[in-house]
Design a protein around this nucleic acid. Structure first.
Lengths: 185, 185
DNA sequence: CCCTGGCTATGACAGTCGTCATAGACTCCG
DNA sequence: CGGAGTCTATGACGACTGTCATAGCCAGGG
């Protein structure tokens, strides 16, 4: 029961941070949305809001990293598709109401959360770099390509949310796939 | 004097929105930062915070559009560089404290501001598309490339802010330039 | 049976927020 | 000099925030 409340709060926090940003997410609203008691927030998260947001961002980060690495043997195109798929799902499930919580945290003013976002982005880049190198991409170039992929996907997700359409993500993926293909030679 | 107060408030709002986001920007803080009287906010902006944020985003959008179109005859590489230059300047001048206010507004929950952000992004994409077509890029592909460029630059700026380094932007620009070059043939 | 300990519920706290009404201070024209 | 109109200053309003102390509930073990 305790674990359930805790994980529901983390999942809800991830969605709410992706919706309003960490600063604008209210603990009362989170409790309401997650269907958990308001008053016991500090029982499960003694570190308060900061701890809650940190765990939510870390959890999303780890989940996406796993998704990238799951298809490591299927090549760069599959890794790109995994990344895009994750956010396509989120955008569609929430009716373009929520985006990437890591990006949300990266664009806010809290240095601790900024450093956390960087950790997550770097983990994604490392996984992508490994896939690229495996596929024969130049070792100098692979990290740069991985950086572009992460930046472009994150930017595209934000554009999708504003435009309430998947087109920015789909267009970006088409061009990125072409670029990755041409880098394999 | 009036015009001066007004434009200082708009410039300050652009910076603050790029720093904390529109929802977390306080009118009191804006007045303090812009060195203008707190109480007269609603004299200059009867529409309140919403009008202020809208004018700030529109002003930044128009400025960047002009910068892209200024070098229209210098080709895609110059347009890309103009876009990157704008945000490099902002990031450096603010010590990675402020990013792109249009992206900030795009990732928040206000549908009106989201639509506004989309307008700005579309204006940028149209300018870039024109430059690409001028340079001989396929007319089907040019809008897609422009979309990727905008998404990637915006994403990269966010990563720069979190990482407190220009590397994400520089890396992305290198790869984007290569891609644009290879699309000219 | 009681009672201990994990969980929940309620409400207070100090602070900030956007908004606006009102009153004072200026500048400039007649 | 006087008055009109533009701008500034002050402070109030209700609502919301994160945080936490306190008290109550309710299952499990002795």
């Amino acid at each position: 029961m305790a674990r359930d409340t805790r994980s529901r709060m983390i999942a809800g926090a991830a969605r709410l941070v992706g919706t309003r940003g960490a600063a604008s997410m209210s603990l009362r609203e989170l409790a309401r949305a997650a269907g958990v008691p308001i008053g016991s927030t500090y029982h499960h998260f003694p570190g308060g809001k900061q701890q809650l947001v940190e765990e939510a961002v870390r959890s999303v980060g780890a989940h996406v990293t796993r998704r990238i690495e799951a298809g490591r043997d299927d090549g760069p195109a599959a890794a790109l598709e995994a990344l895009a798929d994750e956010w396509r799902d989120v955008l569609e499930r929430t009716g373009f109401g929520s985006g990437c919580p890591v990006l949300a945290v990266a664009t806010e003013d809290d240095p601790a959360l900024g450093a956390l976002a960087t950790q997550v982005f770097e983990a994604w880049q490392e996984s992508l770099t490994a896939v690229l190198v495996d596929a024969g991409v130049d070792e100098q170039r692979a990290p740069r390509l991985a950086m572009l992929v992460v930046a472009a996907i994150e930017g595209a997700v934000a554009l999708c949310r504003a435009e309430r359409s998947l087109r920015p993500l789909e267009d970006s993926v088409v061009e990125l796939r072409g670029l990755l293909d041409s880098a394999l030679g």
